[in-house]
Amino acid sequence: DGSTVGRKRKSRWADEEPNPVVQLPDFMKDFAADLDPEVQALNLRLLEISRLLQSGMPLDDRPEGARSPSPEPIYDNMGIRINTREYRARERLNKERQEIISQLIRRNPAFKPPADYRPPKLQK
């Protein structure tokens, strides 16, 4: 059947049915935000990070050969090194956690951040 050559074949997928535009009452908006797949992905990552931070397991378990060079050591006034690998790994996770929480708040103003969340300081 040569008639179809060169013409775009119609996909077997049905057209995306346009979601019925229903104006949700205000009290439903929080609920709807939770259904957003991106919000769900953020929530999952947040749970994962929280679990890692609380697990007490080594956070940076890369073997010797797979690590990038360490920064210069920083010591506190007792002479104890502050920026250990573990400390830096924890800082990294904490930072990501704060960022995810900020995003969740932006998408859903009713989102209740954990008690230890501090909004990022605005740079002057």
Partner: peptide, 19 residues
Amino acid sequence: DVTGSTRAKAALHGRKFAG
């Protein structure tokens, strides 16, 4: 990544393919 599969699941589940 999971973001892709999550989006696809939301969009494709319940949609019709060749009826």
